[in-house]
Design a protein around this nucleic acid. Structure first.
Lengths: 227, 227
DNA sequence: CGGGACCTTGAAACACCTCAAATATGGTGG
DNA sequence: CCACCATATTTGAGGTGTTTCAAGGTCCCG
């Protein structure tokens, strides 16, 4: 069982936290595994929610689309992240793979049943739900109140917070500019111009479109928080 | 015990749903009551989360402010709504009263303890959390993807969904234009112009700044969903 | 090395914001 | 109950940031 990348800055909250050996064994007994290639869907919006998932390796993207084709990316997901919280019987978003990924698949019914026997598991799910809500409220604030370049910094800070060390500020942007744009409520052109602006101001280096380095973390954070 | 306004369109999910008489009595034994006048705070962002609340009557507003003074309204809250979900030991938002309101106050520690004895109560809280997340994801989509007048329709639909009948589309806007603007990520002028535009197009009537009537619900819904 | 997808940049259009002024609203004291 | 006042809302004009449309450049993979 992986789910805890090494050297993560903040301890990662997973469904496995604090489980005893018996609980872990039982959980593993109902857990399957699935591999996804880039672009492949884990599940689609409006399909029955039959399983929950934990990302083992790779990167996933959660998005919601309207029938007119407008798309909002709700989250980029990293190893350890729990996927599949829904308040009804269908997923109300689509999850797809940005990179080659592997996920643990846990049938929802068995998972819910196991939670009745393992209070700690239920508690973990509850806390994860709280974290997801907190993340989503941050996103509401960003989309409602921040300017384009501040939103880009908001994303850069989120991504850099997942990275090992304080010193190494090099970030791999696995997602496309379109994904970033749809996450931040902007267009690809505006995102691209925001990167150029941050580069021009010496706050970041752009080695290639998908590899950037943060040169002035303090300022980036300041812009990200809009403080 | 109130919490269930009459004639609501969709059955309201409260913490009381499906509790047996004993559980209700126990819950009531630890429940206090508080009255708020317009503008009064229920609690402030960054203060210790000591209680959760259920709105009995009136209307509350949940907001988050940054140190630069930018403000995002996260929700307008109606009777029956549960207040105080937080993922850490401090509230990460402020809740204040828009109208004279009364709330049930439940000390967090006792509430958590009671949840261990009453699984249904825990289940209710879990489902309410899911609903709040769903609401917040809707808001992310609205702020990220919708135009100003569509966002206003989004709010109008949310408010009208709380109202008794299908026929009566008259809505009391208790909040100020500034509150609406901060909820939708716009300025008061843009909100005002959006109302004027909807009025000019015959979709709504504006009797006074705080009393409007929806004349063409189908179109309003269409704009609200951006479908 | 070629080709397609992705990214960047520029110019013009547009939506929203800012600033300013006029108007409407609602509460209060006379 | 009415007049008044402070506050909130609407409307207008001009500015700014973001989007749209279009072209050119870059990267990556076969």
């Amino acid at each position: 069982m992986v789910t805890q990348p090494p050297h993560i800055r903040q301890p990662l909250l997973t469904i496995y936290n604090g489980l005893d050996a018996v609980a872990v064994t039982t959980l593993e007994s109902i857990t399957g595994q699935r591999t996804l290639t880039p672009g492949e869907y884990l599940f689609l919006q409006h399909t029955p929610a039959k399983s929950v998932y934990v990302l083992e390796a790779g990167m996933l993207m959660m998005e919601r689309s309207s029938s007119t084709g407008r798309r909002q990316v709700m989250a980029f997901m990293h190893p350890g992240n729990y996927i599949g919280i829904t308040h009804n019987e269908h997923y109300d978003f689509t999850v797809s793979a940005l990179a080659k990924s592997t996920v643990y698949e846990i049938p929802l019914k068995a998972f819910v049943k196991l939670q009745d026997d393992v209070p700690q598991l239920k508690e973990n799910v509850r806390r994860i739900g709280g974290n997801i809500l907190a993340h989503t409220l941050d996103q509401v604030f960003a989309l409602g109140q921040k300017k384009a370049h501040e939103r880009v910094c908001f994303l850069l800070k989120q991504l850099s917070d997942r990275l090992p060390s304080e010193r190494c500020h090099s970030i791999e942007l696995i997602m496309t500019r379109q994904d970033i744009a749809d996450y931040l409520g902007l267009t690809i052109e505006t995102v691209s111009r925001a990167f150029s602006k941050l580069k021009r101001e010496g706050l970041i280096d752009v080695y290639s479109a998908h590899t950037i380095e943060i040169r002035d973390m303090a300022t980036i954070e300041e812009l990200a928080l809009a403080d």
